[in-house]
């Protein structure tokens, strides 16, 4: 239950951090909030030879609410999102998302960027950012690139980031009118990993649901705006769409059970925004 030895680097700029990661190659690892990486290191499932601590990099911090978008530094902690008055007004779904993650003592350290790059299938942020059409700014040795959040996650714990790149900032578009959007999930206890979750976005003529916690990357399905009175028809449509998703069972329940939970949380979200 103790990590293997590693070399510790604590850079103050993104460029220095990228240099350290480039030099370290496959053995290098960036450390953000550490709420997933450090348990993996304690179990020795992760054994980086060089640990590049991003926590001293001021450029990775900060919440900016602009007219057309919200910008989060990758190092913004979940609790800071949950507590931000400005974000609660600009995009309330972000605060709600943050409050669903772990417990207080986890949210004070865990970061939005770390969660996205870790890419746990049960994580909320990858699904929310994909559902909102966010863009991720990655910085590497050859410069900066932006990747749509919906294309970033390739599979469980697998993303499009290169070993010498750092997720620096997250850009979330913001409509002039308040966006009708919410997140619902089912976990065995508050703070536990979601067994199924869904982000629902009211997009004019249709409703889009982005599912997470089903075993793979977030997946989005769209259904034409249903009659608010006719939930049975919508349930039927959602059941058909969710049946086509790749779902993995685990010790908490089989794939079929998870699909039923997914439909249930999707409907719960829909009732709030329809």
């Amino acid at each position: 239950m103790k990590p293997v030895r590693f070399r510790y680097e604590a850079p103050h700029t993104v460029e220095e951090a990228v240099d350290h990661l480039s030099a370290a190659g496959i053995g290098g690892k960036a450390l953000a909030g550490g709420q997933s990486l450090v348990p993996m290191m304690n179990f020795r499932l992760a054994r980086p030879s060089v640990l590049v601590d991003l926590n001293g990099i001021a450029a990775l911090r900060g919440i900016t609410v602009a007219e057309n978008h919200v910008e989060l530094g990758a190092l913004v902690r979940h609790q800071a999102v949950a507590d931000s008055e400005r974000l609660r007004h600009a995009l309330p779904v972000l605060a709600r998302t943050a409050s669903l993650i772990g417990h207080w003592g986890i949210r004070t350290r865990g970061t939005v960027g770390g969660s996205v790059v870790h890419a746990d299938p049960s994580a909320e942020w990858p699904a929310v950012l994909a559902a909102l059409g966010a863009e991720l700014e990655l910085v590497g040795p050859s410069g900066t690139r932006r990747v749509p959040a919906g294309e970033f996650i390739l599979g469980p714990l697998t993303t499009a980031i290169e070993t010498d790149e750092i997720l620096a900032r997250i850009y979330i578009p913001r409509a002039p009118a308040p966006l009708r959007c919410t997140i619902e999930e089912m976990a065995r206890r508050p703070g536990d990993f979601a067994l199924a979750g869904s982000v629902a976005v009211h997009a004019g003529q249709e409703i889009r649901w982005t599912f997470f916690g089903l075993g793979g990357p977030p997946e989005t399905v769209a259904v034409a705006q249903a009659d608010r009175q006719d939930e049975a028809a919508l349930r039927q449509q959602l059941t058909e769409r969710v049946a086509a998703l790749e779902v993995t069972g685990d010790m908490h329940g089989g794939a079929e059970w998870r699909r039923r939970v997914a439909v249930a949380v999707a409907l719960r979200a829909w009732r709030q925004i329809a």
Partner: peptide
Amino acid sequence: CTVLLDGEPIRSCLMFAVQ
């Protein structure tokens, strides 16, 4: 192992002392 870091609770098993 909860301790307070700048007044906020954290897991001290998920942080390195150097941090």
